[in-house]
Each structure stands twice: as structure tokens, then as C-alpha cells.
């Protein structure tokens, strides 16, 4: 247990530090790298909770795919970040004020937090307990049975996003020569090579 709590605090502190560094790093590429580090710490916390499937998916999806694209974009952007920072200073008072109001609201609300009388009963776990089956299986059972409607609809959302990306960016350019692999493969020697008998001094 001691080790577990030490590890927990190490991961949590590192996560917070990484989070702070994401927004305070001067170089945007460094920001993205800190973000990746933050994802790792979060994955570590998931493992600590016994949610190893989520931890791995977090690393695969966010670190392995999403953050790569972030990095890709950020590296190629040519933005004057000094300019952007000037804006931060200008909007800091009003932004800070809004943040302060939200925080005080949160505090007021949490201090007076009363869950409904039957709330705990509603929370009842709808699956076999996680200590009996692996959490990959437990998640699968939930997603593909109880929540399959949401799962499918989320799929529709992603489909729409994909169509949208294509609609807004794909341009068919004129005059581009494309490789036609079947045509290349279908080419036969007889079609393109002719063996001719060339008479002496005659030419073709």
C-alpha cells in the first residue's frame, strides 16, 4: 500500500507539473511534448486504478495518434508567439476575473453539494464486478450491449466528421498524372515491344 500511494503521488504531481508546463512553455513544440508527458502520467494513474485497458488506449489513441498530428501541425506552423503572448497579458485581467467567478461558483456549489437520496442506488454497477473478469471484457460487455446505441451514434458522428474534412479540403487538381497500377500490371510484352528485322542500310 505504501508503494502504491507513493507511486500515486509521483504520478499525480508529475501530471500537474506537466499540465502547468503545457501552458507555460515558451516553445509550442515543447508544449506538445509536455502534453504527451501529461498523457503518460494519466495513463500511469489509470494503471494504478486497475484500468489497464484504458491506460493503453490512452497511450495508443492520444499519444500515438492525436498528439502526433498536433506535433505535425505545430512544427510546421509559423506563428509569432511573442505576439500571441502580448494578447495573453492584455486579456489576463478579464480572463482571470471570469476564472475567479467560476471557481467561486464551484466552491459554493460543492460546499452545498447534496446528492439525491437514491443516487447511490442508481449508480449500481451494471456489469460483473471488475475483480472477477478483466476490464477489457467488462468494457466490451458494456459498450456493445447497454450502450451500443450511443456507440453507434458516436460512429455516425465520426463519419460526419470524416465527410466534413473531405468536403472542406479535398480539391481535384487538373493535370495531375496518376499512377494506374492495374494498367501497369496489365501491360504485356507483346503490347509494347516489337521485334523487327532491320535490313542492312534499310532503317526501320
Amino acid at each position: 500500500m505504501v508503494i502504491q500511494s507513493i507511486v500515486f503521488y509521483v504520478f499525480s504531481c508529475a501530471l500537474l507539473i506537466c499540465g502547468v508546463m503545457v501552458i507555460s512553455a515558451r516553445n509550442p513544440v515543447h508544449s506538445v511534448l509536455w502534453l504527451i508527458a501529461a498523457f503518460f502520467q494519466a495513463a500511469g494513474l489509470f494503471v494504478l486504478m486497475g484500468a489497464e485497458f484504458l491506460a493503453m488506449i490512452l497511450v495508443i489513441v492520444y499519444v500515438g495518434a492525436v498528439a502526433v498530428l498536433f506535433l505535425f501541425v505545430v512544427m510546421m506552423l509559423d506563428i509569432n508567439f511573442v505576439e500571441l503572448r502580448r494578447g495573453v497579458v492584455r486579456y489576463l485581467p478579464i480572463g482571470g476575473l471570469i476564472g475567479l467567478v467560476l471557481v467561486s461558483e464551484l466552491v459554493a456549489m460543492v460546499s452545498g453539494w447534496v446528492p439525491a437520496a437514491g443516487a447511490l442506488a442508481q449508480l449500481g454497477a451494471p456489469v460483473p464486478p471488475v475483480d472477477q473478469i478483466s476490464n477489457t471484457r467488462a468494457l466490451g460487455q458494456l459498450i456493445y450491449t447497454q450502450y451500443f446505441y450511443l456507440f453507434q451514434t458516436a460512429g455516425m458522428i465520426l463519419l460526419v466528421a470524416m465527410i466534413g474534412a473531405i468536403v472542406l479540403t479535398l480539391r481535384s487538381r487538373e493535370g495531375v498524372r496518376r499512377q494506374n497500377v492495374p494498367a501497369q500490371l496489365a501491360r504485356r510484352r507483346e503490347d509494347v515491344v516489337a521485334v523487327r528485322k532491320v535490313p542492312t542500310r534499310g532503317g526501320v
Binding site: P115, A116, A117, G118, A119, L120, A121
Partner: peptide
């Protein structure tokens, strides 16, 4: 508040 996202159950809890 309710431990549930379903409308009918939320209604029941708020009514209670």
C-alpha cells in the same frame, strides 16, 4: 446529483 443520466430517473429523484 442523481448518479444517473436517464431522464425518467432524474425526474423521479428530483420529485423525491
Amino acid at each position: 446529483f442523481g448518479g444517473t443520466t436517464q431522464f425518467d430517473r432524474i425526474a423521479g429523484l428530483i420529485a423525491a
